[in-house]
């Protein structure tokens, strides 16, 4: 299984994502620059955190027009796995690959600390190794993670089980304590917390590990190979 970690000018969690893939699932992984125009060899695309294009205008607003994003849209439409973390989540909402938007934190503060998330749906490619209701410790680091969508969209998210993670103690004022959502097809996930920063006890938590092993597991199931333990 091939992983791509996108790199925009201003990405700063790209190395963490790369290392997390190496250390959790040990699959081939490449850094892919924002100017790339072919992602066809990749099965999973990770859009890392950071401040793409300095977050000028709005977080993710300029990155979403980078050449590589047309390829991400293609990959998403083809059913490949796309995970946007933090700034990556912001890029995915700006690109319209996920509904809603991320506003300034209610507190106006940049919040950087561990958060406890509740796994709401474990029937996705990103969460199949978790239990529903499992409480996991994943850190956040953002100033604009306050998820918003209109009421019609919110109803759809609930109806289709697209709310994947909720905060147990909401750090940013997001609607319904939303920390992460997926698209209707379930192959595109966006979340504000950083699973790649929680893959080893040395980092304070290894609860993010299962997000990566879930992806590999989903891919193997899709490709009819033995699943990993």
């Amino acid at each position: 299984m091939n992983f791509a970690v996108l790199v925009f000018p201003g990405s700063n969690c790209d190395i963490d994502c790369y290392k997390a893939v190496e250390q959790t699932v040990g699959q081939p992984v490449d850094y892919v620059w924002h100017t790339a125009t072919d992602l066809s060899k990749y099965d999973c695309i990770l859009i890392p955190g950071g401040f793409s294009y300095g977050d000028y205008l709005r977080s993710g607003a300029i990155a979403r027009f980078a050449p590589v994003m047309a390829e991400v849209a293609k990959a998403a439409a083809a059913g490949k796995y796309v995970m946007g973390i933090c700034n990556g989540f912001q890029v995915l909402t700006e690109a319209g690959l996920l509904p809603g938007a991320l506003r300034r934190n209610m507190s106006l503060k940049f919040r950087c600390h561990s958060t406890i998330l509740r796994v709401e749906n474990n029937k996705t490619a990103f969460t199949n190794q978790y239990e529903v209701g499992e409480m996991i410790d994943i850190p956040i680091a953002h100033g604009e993670g306050n998820y918003y969508c209109d009421e019609v969209t919110l109803e759809q998210l609930k109806k289709n089980d697209q709310i994947i993670f909720r905060y147990s103690d909401n750090p940013n004022g997001s609607m319904e304590d939303i920390a992460g959502i997926c698209n209707e097809q379930g192959n595109v996930l966006g979340l504000m917390p950083h699973p790649e920063r929680a893959v080893n006890q040395l980092l304070g938590s290894e609860d993010g590990k299962k997000m990566f092993t879930s992806i590999l597991n989903a891919w193997r199931e899709q490709h009819d190979a033995a699943s990993i333990g």
């Binding site: 205008l57 709005r58 607003a61 300029i62 938007a101 506003r103 918003y148 209109d150």
Partner: peptide
């Protein structure tokens, strides 16, 4: 397209 995010 760019200057405003009409969702919010």
């Amino acid at each position: 397209k760019l200057l405003a995010n009409t969702v919010v």
